[in-house]
Structure formats: C-alpha cells, structure tokens
Amino acid sequence: MAETMIDVEVVYAAVDRQVLLTVAVAPGCTVSEAVRLSGIADQFVGEDVLALPVGIYGKVVSDPHVRAVEEGDRIELYRPLLADPMEVRRLRAAKAAKNRQ
C-alpha cells in the first residue's frame, strides 16, 4: 500500500520577490527535510536559504531537524532584518516631532 503524503507550504520573501511552494512529503518528515524537498533553494541562487531560521505560521521552530511537519503547515524562512524596527519607529517619531515645531 502506498504511503499517504501530506501537503505543506514553504515560503520565503526576499527583498525583491517572494516565493510560495507547495510540497507533498511523507508523514514524519521534518521541517528541514520539507524545506530541502521543496526546492526553494533553487529559486534563490546565491543565497543560503537552507541555513535561515524557520517558523510555522509565525512561530519560530527551535529545532527544525527534529520537528515533524503536519498537514497544511506553512513553513516560513526568515531572512535577517536590515534595520531594527524599533529604532526605525523611534527615528520616524523624532522626525515627525521636529517637523511639528
């Protein structure tokens, strides 16, 4: 009897584009395996997307080599931030306050 596959999504947003791929994997497949099997690394040549931190629906997965995926999971690859959002917000507020004077 053939093993039933489950579908998961793998998504990565680069600065200039984003890619969402659906991949069918075997039950028990780990997050890392699902990312590799999706082929998303082929979409971003020159970037080491397989080494990026990952999460499922916005929650970071601390050990993607152990955590098994579930049907319908959306695996997200997180690229490093170019700027600290808190600092950007603080600078924008200071600029707005200066312009009001």
Rank of each mutant, 00 (worst) to 15 (best):
A41I: 11
A96L: 04
A26R: 09
S62V: 11
P80D: 02
L50K: 01
E9G: 09
P64L: 00
R89E: 07
E76F: 15
M1Y: 10
V49R: 05
G55L: 03
M86E: 05
E71I: 11
Q43I: 12
P27C: 00
V61A: 02
A96V: 04
P85N: 00
P80K: 05
Q43G: 07
T22D: 08
L82W: 15
V66W: 01
A24Y: 13
F44Q: 15
D73E: 07
E3K: 15
T22Y: 12
M5N: 09
G28Q: 02
A96R: 04
A13V: 14
V60G: 09
A97S: 12
V8Y: 08
R67W: 08
I56L: 02
D84N: 04
G39M: 08
A83H: 14
V49F: 04
V60M: 07
L82E: 14
I6T: 07
V61W: 08
C29Y: 06
E71K: 10
V15E: 15
S38E: 08
G28E: 06
Q101W: 11
L82C: 11
R36E: 08
A26K: 09
P85T: 03
P85I: 03
L52I: 02
K98D: 09
A94I: 01
A2I: 13
E9K: 08
V88L: 12
Y78R: 12
R74Y: 10
R92D: 12
V8Q: 10
Y57T: 10
P64G: 01
